[in-house]
């Protein structure tokens, strides 16, 4: 039983030179409350820091945040690095992903093509992302609740 209900570990961080910390602080709280084990790398996190954290913590998902408009450049090559490290993890990206007023569906397609499993805009509630995470990790709500009680 305990094995099944072990907390799932996720890596969280703001990529590149971006120093916007409020979003991931709230996301960290939300994920912890939902029973996840959260490794929060903080702001201004380089690609290799995401990769090595995912490896050393045996994480199941890497959640990348970016709010200053340079997400595409900052994320370029991240999936190659994950592959090179032999990691098969879920990857999400969210925030203000493009400079200016570009169409979100286009942005979504760009980031999906780069290898991200899910792409969110800055208006997404933490709960929505967590719901997706449960779905993608095939966690049932009951199990998630169980995790919270145990945690």
């Amino acid at each position: 039983m305990t094995g099944k209900y072990m907390p799932r570990t996720v890596i969280l961080g703001v990529i590149g030179s971006d120093a916007h910390v409020v979003g991931i602080t709230i996301l960290e709280q939300a994920l912890s409350a939902a029973g996840f084990e959260v490794i929060n790398l903080g702001v201004q996190t380089a690609q290799d820091e995401f990769v090595s954290a995912a490896k050393s913590h045996d994480a199941e998902a890497v959640l990348v945040s970016s709010l200053y408009g340079h997400a595409r450049q900052d994320c370029e090559g991240l999936h190659d690095e994950l592959d090179d490290a032999g990691l098969d993890v879920l990857t999400y990206v969210g925030g203000n992903l493009a400079v200016g007023q570009s169409d979100f569906e286009e942005t979504q397609a760009t980031f999906r093509q780069m290898g991200f499993d899910r792409v969110f805009d800055a208006e997404t509630d933490p709960e929505e992302a967590i719901e997706m995470l449960r779905e993608d990790l095939q966690l049932t709500t009951t199990e998630a609740e169980q995790i919270r009680v145990d945690g």
Binding site: V22, I26, Q29, A30, A33, P126
Partner: peptide
């Protein structure tokens, strides 16, 4: 934390 997020 939901209050915190809503207040921000």
């Amino acid at each position: 934390f939901r209050m915190v997020a809503d207040d921000v």
